[in-house]
Amino acid sequence: MAEEVSSQMNSLSISETNPSSSATISLVSGDDIVFKVEPTIAKEMETVQSFIDETDGKITTIPLPNISSHDLPYVIEYCEKSIAGKITKEFEAEFVKKLNNEEVKELFLAANYLNIKKLLDFLSQVIADRIANKSVEYVRRYFGIENDFTPEEEAKLREELAWTFTGVDPDDEDEN
């Protein structure tokens, strides 16, 4: 009994000097909005967690200057569902329905920056679905990527792929 009390005391005294053990984590978005989340949420975000670990838990306010207050709630929502084991196809379908192309891309970059594997995989699929069956030009526009092939390279590339066909041209009946 006495031992239990002392260990409890011990943990109490630790938590005084080490506020991270159960304290909420403050995530500060690029536009300076503070989001308080449970430490379990932070654990889902590898980048945030390693930041906390590296400072021995002394710092619980994490600036995330390249994530906006518009995107961060989506990330937190996904992480909460993930912890609860409630990532279903239905949830993901609803989740993605709310997002336009720009938001999907922003969230993808946020997930990449925060290193949230599950969210990153999910959004990779969403992006793949959105560029599926699209032309080279569409994909370039979607990602804002410049065509950096030299005319010679492009000719070589065409030659190399001459046996395929340009663009995917599904039957009308096959279009979604």
Partner: peptide
């Protein structure tokens, strides 16, 4: 995650 034909005829030619 794209189909094989899409990788070949679209993604690989982007840049």
């Amino acid at each position: 995650r794209l189909g094989t034909i899409e990788i070949l005829t679209s993604a690989s030619q982007v840049c």
